[in-house]
């Protein structure tokens, strides 16, 4: 950890001003990722801007359009257990509760969840090449141990995956990210918030330095009737997803009116393929149709020495989770597979 300075700010304007003071000034909220990155020199800061006191960012409010606004500083736990979220957006609640541990969910904030960095081993080991940490140095994972790495949307520069569970649900729910910056406010559809690595793997998302996330909006449709979150990993809890799936359906007389499927643990961002969701519309919610949708989603997927299994695993996970969404009560603590 380097010897950064520290300031607490109490409103968004002050936060933006402080962050803009220097490219190496960084915002901290829950601190569950950045403090660790700082501690072990994976990232450096000149000044840490503590945005926790900003009251306006810490709430959950109902919006006029029937949606709900999640404050960026509201904690993951408070969000998951909020009665509105549990009732109207249970997919989000389940996905949050599948992530990290109870302690970390008590600390981590909604904005911070979007900002967390990859868990790639090589990103964290500062003695190995990593284009995300040190642009131009190379990607060690491609020819290294890549069990946890991407099968979709990766580039020859980076095969890291984005580790969030919450964001997989936010992607499925068509959330919107509200951002405040030196040039005022702007909104980004969730799908446009995170980036693919392409030539610039050091950029995880489209937030510009000096901007802060103020809140995340959920549209009115929460898919509270038919939803499921499934997380597959190397132990039952407190570990990152190898593959996770968020599925949500609006059913009408036994056919799918509206479908959402998002994958986690497979790409540099939550992975959604609208074509697959369109395919399911007006179809029956059968294993065969879900399998077909999975094929569309995984079109173009390719793996490496240690993560090839993810392609088949994702295919099966999509099918299972879509079937689970028909019986949401089949979900188990920790987003384990149904019995």
């Amino acid at each position: 950890m380097n010897n950064f300075s520290y300031i607490k700010v109490s409103d968004a304007k002050q936060a933006i001003a402080e962050l803009n003071g220097d490219i190496r000034n960084k915002a901290v909220a829950g601190g569950t990722n950045i403090n660790d990155l700082l501690k072990y020199f994976v990232t450096k800061a000149d000044k840490l801007v503590d945005i926790n006191p900003i009251q306006e960012f810490n709430s959950i409010i109902r919006l006029d359009d029937g949606g709900v606004r999640l404050g960026a500083l509201h904690t993951n736990a408070d969000t998951a257990y909020d009665p509105i979220i549990e009732e109207r957006y249970p997919l989000l609640s389940k996905a949050i509760l599948a992530g990290a541990s109870a302690q970390i969910r008590n600390m981590a904030t909604n904005g911070g969840n979007l900002m967390q960095r990859t868990r790639c081993y090589y990103f964290y080991d500062i003695s190995t090449p990593c284009n995300k940490r040190d642009p131009g140095s190379g990607c060690s994972a491609i020819s290294g141990y890549n069990r946890i790495h991407a099968i979709l949307g990766q580039s020859e520069n980076c095969i890291a995956v984005f580790p969030s569970d919450m964001c997989v649900a936010l992607a499925a729910l068509n959330a919107q990210v509200n951002i405040s910056g030196p040039n005022g406010e702007r909104k980004l559809p969730f799908a446009n918030f995170h980036r693919l690595p392409s030539e610039t793997p050091h950029l995880d998302n489209n937030l510009i330095h000096g901007e802060v996330i103020t809140s995340i909006d959920l549209p009115a449709e929460g898919f509270a009737e038919n939803y499921s979150y499934l997380k597959l990993r190397d132990r039952s809890s407190y570990s990152f997803a190898l593959v996770s799936v968020a599925s949500a359906f609006e059913l009408e007389q036994g056919t799918i009116k509206n479908a959402r499927i998002a994958l986690g643990g497979v790409a540099h961002k939550p992975w959604r393929v609208l074509e697959a969701e369109d395919f399911l519309k007006q179809k029956e919610p059968t294993r065969e149709n879900f399998s077909q949708a999975a094929k569309i989603i995984l079109n173009g997927a390719f793996g490496y020495e240690h993560n090839n299994f993810k392609i088949e695993l994702a295919h099966r996970a999509i099918i299972r989770n879509c079937l689970m969404a028909l019986y949401p009560e089949s979900q188990r603590p920790g987003a384990k597979p149904s019995r």
Partner: peptide, 11 residues
């Protein structure tokens, strides 16, 4: 200890 997996209580 996040990537060197030992069982958690849920296992």
């Amino acid at each position: 200890l996040a990537e060197y997996h030992i069982p958690v209580h849920a296992d």
